[in-house]
Nucleic acid binder design. Structure first.
Length: 373
RNA sequence: GGUGGGGUGACCGAGUGGCUAAUGGUAGCAGACUGUAAAUCUGCCGGGCUCUGCCCUACGUAGGUUCGAAUCCUACCCCCACCA
């Protein structure tokens, strides 16, 4: 349980298999985001048919609604959602960042004002672990302190050191509650400052061993080159036999850039959010599904894609669904975008196993960037 | 035939002498979105140009009053309601 086996590497890129209580994940892999216990707009069957192997849920949101006690009473997140595969719950640390203005950070934890009903809720490292234990995902995440990508050294250091202190508390509470069915992954912080990142990773590894290590606090306002630099700085220090999870990333190109720098697992809301907003990813760029250019088009959204959307519906109909604001359009484009990222992971894996990843990904990225995206 | 109300940019609809190329909304067009406060948000939306400004056209039609009119006056056309 919680084992990770590397099948092949090519440069820093890796192909592996992660074994979890609810199933295996072949990496590199994209994990769709189901914050509220649902990948927005999609049924578990939809998600399964995209080839996604693991789904993410959120501690903070599920704590607010329906409340972890309800989920536990119903048999845990798997029974609650009927998703039978592996799951991971994020700790609510990202909400420390995204709900800035609705929260106050203290050493003990974070006081949030609920965006749902205005009530005040305190989330502590121990509380985040308790909630996640009740939710019962395969992987729980440490409660961390995310700072913006432009955060100066002082602020980034503060967040990084606090994350490390909270890591100790999370680990202790997790061990107290351990039932062998859930593992805990730490999160490396440190903003865009290499010295902080290094210290964060070293401090994290000292507290190990871990069944996985997450890199957090990226894609929060910093530039791509900076994100790549951080990944390159961390890669040689990360344990080879441990899966690496780059949190909150990303867009299609980000997946390949991350895989090339040794990342095994990704998650991102962009696939579903962009899907709902009418932006579809296609080879070489993206398509504005609402755009006038699609009117009357009988072409598939992405002729290279094998998803339900692309094998069934013409572009002109998908555009129509957005024009008339039918929910089917949101679902179909979200479905495609997830399949697009999942397939990108599958392709990357196949190329790593074949030793052709470098050339393939460079060509893919060249085609992608050629259209200015 | 009479009385009353009304005709504003693709549509709906404010505006009743200068700050009005004309509030809003809709439709249309474009863009943004990275561990989801997001089926959301932003921008453009009469035409042209030598484009931080200038010119042309425009509030049913044609005249008029005025330094200045979508706004006031006259005539005409059309729409709606009620009465014959």
């Amino acid at each position: 349980m919680f084992e990770f086996h590397l099948q092949a590497t090519e440069g820093a890129a890796r192909a592996g298999t992660l074994c979890l209580p609810h199933g295996r994940i072949e990496t590199p892999a994209f994990m769709p985001v189901g914050t509220h216990g649902v990948v927005r707009g999609l049924s578990p069957g939809d998600v399964r048919r995209t080839g996604a192997q693991i789904v993410l849920g959120n501690t903070y949101h599920l704590h607010l609604r329906p409340g972890e006690s309800v989920v536990r009473q119903m048999g845990g997140l798997h029974r609650f959602t009927t998703w039978t595969g592996p799951m991971l719950t994020d700790s609510g640390g990202f909400q420390v960042f995204s709900l800035e203005g609705l929260r106050r950070i203290g050493e003990d934890g974070v006081e949030f004002q609920s965006h749902v009903d205005g009530t005040y809720r305190t989330l502590t490292p121990e509380g985040a672990i308790e909630i996640q234990a009740a939710l019962g995902a395969d992987i729980a995440m440490v409660f961390d302190h995310v700072v913006p990508g432009q955060a100066p050294h002082e602020l980034a250091r503060e967040g990084m050191e606090r994350t490390l202190r909270w890591l100790d508390r999370c680990k202790r509470r997790h061990e107290e509650l351990a039932d062998g069915r859930q593992t805990l992954w730490p999160i490396v912080q440190g903003g865009t400052h290499d010295d902080l990142r290094r210290r964060s990773l070293e401090g994290t590894l000292e507290r190990g061993p871990w069944t996985g290590v997450a890199i957090g606090g990226l894609s929060v306002g910093e530039s791509k080159p900076v994100m790549h630099r951080v990944l390159e700085a961390l890669e040689p220090v990360l344990p080879r036999e441990t899966p690496r999870y780059l949190m909150g990333v990303g867009f299609p190109a980000d997946l390949l850039e991350g895989i090339a720098r040794g990342v095994d697992l990704f998650d991102c809301v962009a696939a579903t959010r962009n899907g709902r907003h009418g932006t579809a990813w296609v080879p070489g760029g993206r398509v504005n599904v609402r755009g006038a250019a699609l009117k009357g088009s009988t072409e598939p959204l992405d002729p290279e894609c094998d998803c339900e959307t692309c094998t069934t519906y013409p572009r002109g109909y998908l555009r129509h669904l957005f024009v008339v604001e039918d929910m089917l359009g949101l679902r179909l484009v979200s479905l495609h975008n997830i399949r697009f990222l999942v397939r990108l992971g599958e392709q990357a894996r196949a190329h790593i196993l074949a030793g052709t990843f470098d050339g393939w990904s460079r060509a893919w990225l060249r085609r992608h960037y050629a259209r200015g995206t």
